[in-house]
Amino acid sequence: MSMIEIVREEMRKCDAKTLRSVRLNIGQMAAIVPDSLSFCFEVITKGTEMEGARLMMDVIPLKGYCNTCESEFEIKDYVFACPSCGDTNIKTISGQDLAIVEIEVD
């Protein structure tokens, strides 16, 4: 629902009448199943200005940054430790995303 509200607001801003597509960033660790999201989107947009729009989802890999040795790396098999120095003092820099990146409208 939040997604629909954001798209509607953005469409209003640029005076758009129909929605062609929505591009989303979905983090690898986000609790999102792309097929389910597409299905829900199709169901709730039926009969609206968004009907028939395509959802394009880019899965964003889970990446970390090591606060100790300052390296960036992909987090594999959900092991939250730095592969270079082994430290667990890391932060997640991507992979939990759930964002609307772009819409295509007419």
């Binding site: 939040s2 509200e5 954001i6 640029c14 758009a16 759930l98 964002a99 772009e102 295509e104 007419d106």
Partner: peptide, 14 residues
Amino acid sequence: MKVSVVRNILEAND
């Protein structure tokens, strides 16, 4: 027409 948005879907809840 393509429009760049870049908004977190959960922003309202956050």
